[in-house]
Design a binder for these strands. Structure first.
Lengths: 359, 359
DNA sequence: TTTGTGTATGTTTGCGCAAACATGATTGGT
DNA sequence: ACCAATCATGTTTGCGCAAACATACACAAA
């Protein structure tokens, strides 16, 4: 857009600014009344059109819609919410978005909620403390969300201390609070079982495990399933190594594992740690899968490009998110709570990091 | 729900609806009036306490707070927003959360906004079309957010077609709309320049480039900077290979590059593609960095565990997010728009994927 | 004492919307 | 032709909060 000199550049930016100035307070400057006046009807009729009431004759409806378009009318959701008591909003409380799984889940939640015309309000919990979570829930209460989905890996959701406004529904991802809340989660145990069985079926005598942090339910469930799968097969259960999900922690575990003489198969609790293990094995001169087989968990998009491409357990984060939304929406609709756990299945994806043991 | 006879049938049609409706409506059951009654003051005084007005005597304040606690009072943000015209909410429009950078940026935005007591409303754009973005902005208008941050890599933000309610401020991440909007972005050009200069300084004759998709501004900026850096140094500019950010696309590019005789140095537009390149080179028997040096972009946490650990350009997503929030909040406070581009610097992180050429 | 000044609190009002109720117009049946 | 039933539309009201204004009371200065 060219400008001759003499035009104050600010005009360029927003000639609307004066109006906008006054509009800061009531940014929604066009109200139903304005539309009503222009259309020559009552504001209630505008409301009816706005809500798709069938009791409006076609000609009137068209007039109103024309007036709406002309004025650029947008219903004010604050007023709407005040009147109806519902924001059509789901609050999502999450601790650390940086984990891939949480992000994916969040994305699915946002997408699925949008499909049902619900918005997402995001409240991050800075510190995984009771106080932090408490505060988040408290904020949610103020925000008058209709429901809350908590995405947390930590044990911190203590029912006794969480007080939501009555009528607000909760779904929790990854927790063992199934007795009191709706819980949706990946079927961690089955995924871990598949990973271990795969290695056992390949002929490995036993399987070592690099677990995630103890505070994580996901980690604990995977570790427990690994243990019982080995036990059920009558195999020895080696000591657990523990990482913090990061590739670096996997690397450290790998350094130790590489020196473990009998170790021919490892199940890492996630792909990133598996990547670290791969690096450690490489540096220690252990070939994967020839010397050591390795299975990860998550199936990150890059797993197929690892060296070698990683056999791993695929998690369906999109499904988890969708289930959360469906669950919470159903609770809203029926005004019931629905404790219980919904498990989303996993798939074992076999690539090139696993093979039968050499000897 | 059972009904004895005698109930008019209309009650029957939606017994659930009534309860659900009622519950939603009174979800925020405790109002200022209730607190006021219990505390023996007027509701206005409750409002004053609630907003921290200094004009309330200490004893009164304590009474009111006691009453609030007893009743579990939470201010109703719908009413508050209706009255004040502000939700203390920032809308974030994002296309595809699955990219690491977007996620990180979003996380920083959410965290930083929370610090200033703003909530985040998330609207995902399903399809990167004008209509999709239009719809998202339109929804934002209805949601009466105070400002919007658009996180998009695509050229789709066409000023002409985006109409926000006046008074709503916009900040855009990764776009060239700096003339009309506030734009905050990583300093892509400088980052790319650093990557190329690093390789040139190592003694490489020229640097090949695996770019991201054409629709991405980030990709185009990195490619342009790569080109001019080479040109400025008087080097030949090899043809660009193009991927789609994924490791798989990097792999394909790597397969071709490995057969390119004079290719001793490659700059990949992101780390995931670099990972794919690494795999391709490995399969083709090209050693990194002995035969080919490789630099990525992003510095994903796993980059240090790649084989070999990847030299890459670190992006400061947290800073980008923080700048976005600061920017938008300032616009809200001063009620001005503030076109212009804010660039967040990058850092070159040298690991083991680069070395002087063998010649 | 009176008057003034400030300070703590109460009262009124309206934000924009939609439920509830009221009205007026149009039908159809007899 | 009349009344009733239906339908389209208008009017009133209040959601919960906080700005604006009103009041009442305390204390200082005259």
């Amino acid at each position: 857009m060219e400008h001759e000199s003499g035009q104050p550049p600010v005009r360029n930016i927003s000639p609307v600014k004066e109006t906008a100035g006054a509009a800061l307070r009531r940014k929604q400057q066009v109200s139903m009344a304005d539309v009503a006046k222009l259309a020559g009807v009552s504001s209630q009729t505008v409301s009816r059109v706005s809500n798709g009431s069938p009791d409006v004759i076609e000609s009137t409806r068209r007039q109103v819609i024309a007036a709406m378009n002309e004025l650029g009318y947008r219903p004010n959701s604050a007023a709407r919410a005040l009147k109806r008591g519902s924001f059509r909003t789901i609050g999502v409380i999450t601790f650390s978005l940086s984990s891939l799984g949480n992000m994916r889940t969040l994305e699915a939640i946002a997408l699925h909620a949008a499909r049902q015309d619900f918005a997402i309000t995001l409240i991050p919990v800075t510190a995984p403390t009771q106080a932090g979570i408490q505060g988040a829930f408290s904020r949610m209460g103020e925000l008058a969300v209709d429901a809350v989905i908590a995405i947390m890996e930590v044990h911190l959701l203590d029912a006794a201390t969480v007080t939501l406004p009555p009528g607000v529904k909760v779904v929790v991802v990854d927790s063992d609070a199934g007795e009191e809340y709706s819980v949706v989660d990946t079927d961690q145990a089955d995924g871990a079982r598949k990973a271990v069985r795969h290695l056992l079926d390949l002929g490995h005598e036993t399987v070592w495990h690099v677990a995630g942090p103890e505070e994580s339910f996901a980690s604990e469930r995977r570790a427990a399933a690994w243990r019982t799968t080995l036990a059920d097969a009558g195999r020895a259960v080696p000591p657990v190594l523990r990482g913090d999900w990061s590739a670096d922690s996997g690397y450290e575990a790998g350094l130790r594992l590489a020196d473990e003489p009998g170790c021919t198969a490892v199940f890492a609790a996630n792909d990133h740690m598996a990547l670290g293990l791969l690096r450690a094995f490489r540096e220690k001169g252990k070939a994967v899968p020839e010397d050591i087989s390795l299975v990860g968990f998550d199936d990150v998009p890059e797993a197929s490009s690892y060296a070698p491409p990683l056999t791993t357990v695929h998690q369906n984060f999109a499904d988890v998110g969708n289930q959360c939304v469906d669950n919470v929406l159903q609770q809203i609709r029926t005004n019931t709570t629905k404790p219980g756990i919904t498990l989303v299945p996993t798939q074992l994806v076999v690539r090139h990091s696993t093979a039968p043991p050499k000897h």
